[in-house]
Design a protein around this nucleic acid. Structure first.
Lengths: 194, 194, 194, 194
DNA sequence: AATGAATGAGAATTCATTCAT
DNA sequence: TATGAATGAATTCTCATTCAT
């Protein structure tokens, strides 16, 4: 019998759940296996080691972001402003609906990237590049503030979204996902001033 | 000889350095001791356990934020807009100049808060309350956008600052701290649109 | 493969040997593992911690004593004197033949019971109760000295047996087990006087 | 200033208390120092190491027993029976009134003797020899049972006393010290039979 | 002599990973 | 492929002892 896609998915899902609850370093392989309904040994049929599991989680995430954003950024039929809104929608779409994934992403991503070879580098950097390109296009066409470096804008927007989403799933922000998305778009467009 | 403040500071500083480099869970007590120039056993004269070291790091951080922001938020002689700028300056002031502290804060804070009793809860929540109060005051007086919930605004701003600072110290944003601060203030005020 | 009874027994036996030689606190887990022929980590497949190993040693001991004495004490076909002799035989039977077990029991039991939750409380107390009941029955039927409280008699007899057995296995008493048993029964029956 | 006898006594007393409560291996030097009202470092002015403290505790105990029993055993004006009663009184006198000392003695003595050089060997063995001599004298003069080896009798009696005293101080025997002494003497003389 | 902060060797325990079945 | 018992390297924390003051 070949390796089972179902089993791999079960492990993937279980890992997101367990890591979101305990954090990566306190998430035990045995617990992930238990939640996935497989034996501890079976994890190693599908993943080479613990890092590999988290690597795949982020790879899927960035692959989706990348697959959505790169073509979007290159479209000729949309204004920079429409592209930016689309980019924001994309980030929300990829994360919304999986509370555990948000938690894993917010809590583990930076640390995981820091001293490691990761498989999703390309997706990640191309996503960031496409996001910057949208800002730069807007600056070039005179609709976005030209005085703020594009990658500062990117980081600020993405950091703001990340923390807001985290606040929402942790229950410290009493808004639903749709409302949050609207508020954040407004914020990004116009800032706090009326 | 009484316990030495110098030694406690040395451990505190060494811990920030080692944790920023390896992440909390891979930061070995022995390494922290080595960098601090004390024996491994001595760590336990100053801190009850490994968690305690990180707890104190965050406690000092939030204490400073709290000590700066709470009185600021209550001043009668400043406009909400001035207070908000002051709050942003404060966050920058507390973090700027300690690259390692920024890294520790960004990478470890959420995870550390998640399933643990922490000593700095009060400072943390009062800081957030004061930040929200500033936004609410601005909304009440008609200068800030009243349609975005104050705590969404807070989270978005703080998340944006956090990630931008991280980008700066990690070298992915080619701006200095002062410029970053200016850019971010502009962004918060007016958003991306010209 | 399921957990192995053989391996558990090997650890149990090794622990008795190592603890008898070094005392509980100087008996290293690594040494127990080595003697048992398993890895240090394997100890924790069978026992939750070091205390647990000793707890099980005593549990088995008292379970045997209890299983032998409680029914004996309730028999209608035996005189109190016969029951007492049976009780003494039982204690000897359970301990005789395992020199190391005697040493562990004599040297570690009191200390272990002192400030800890133990799993064998029931067996232990029911054993003592049955022993006392035999004495009381003898006092009620006029064959045992009624002026000495039953539990004083119990403690004295059990303490005497314990120390004598210890002396024997340590080589300070030049008698074999069978002779020791006979002598002690005589002593208990009639005291030192002729 | 010379070393202080008072301080040594304070440490001695504190050690008995702390060891009786926690057991020797869990009794911390720092705790003994605290109870004694001296610094941890000062313990080493009076004792070479932790073992030394316990060694001295037992040394004093056996010195008293020895000082009382050896001359008693050699007296010509007393019958063996009187000497035996005197020996029992002696053991009680030395231990009675110091609950903690009883606990330390019962719980730590065997283990401590086992693999160590001790300073009180002479006192200990001469005490046992004198005790045996009394029994042998009684056997020779026809008042004590000649069929039981003298050192078996010794061990049995001393073990019985030890455990009974322990039971009394631990509260499992509801008798006072004086009553216990009387009961045990009766038991030793005549056994359990009426 | 007294202090108590500093030391560092030592040990229990954990858990990712392996491998015999 | 699947299993899960076995492994053993790794690491935190303890505490008797030392020694500068």
């Amino acid at each position: 019998m070949a390796v089972s896609i179902d089993k791999e998915r079960a492990i993937h899902k279980a890992a997101i759940q367990v890591i979101s609850e305990y954090g990566f370093h306190k998430a035990k392989m045995a617990k992930i296996a238990e939640v996935a309904g497989v034996s501890a040994g079976s994890l190693y049929t599908y993943y080479s080691d613990k890092d590999h599991i988290l690597d795949r989680i982020f790879e899927m995430l960035w692959k989706k972001d990348w697959a959505g954003l790169v073509p979007l950024s290159e479209r000729k039929d949309l204004s920079p402003q429409e592209k930016l809104e689309g980019a924001i929608d994309l980030v929300f779409d990829v994360l919304t609906g999986d509370r555990n994934l948000i938690i894993v992403f917010v809590n583990e991503f930076n640390n995981f990237m820091k001293n490691k070879e990761v498989s999703f580098s390309l997706y990640y950097h191309e996503f960031l590049g496409a996001f910057s390109a949208i800002i730069e296009e807007g600056q070039a066409t005179g609709v976005f503030n030209p005085h703020i470096p594009a990658n500062v804008t990117c980081d600020f927007i993405l950091g703001g979204i990340r923390k807001s989403l985290y606040g929402q799933v942790m229950g410290t922000l009493a808004v639903d996902g749709a409302a949050l998305r609207t508020h954040i778009k407004a914020m990004i467009r116009r800032g706090v001033l009326v």
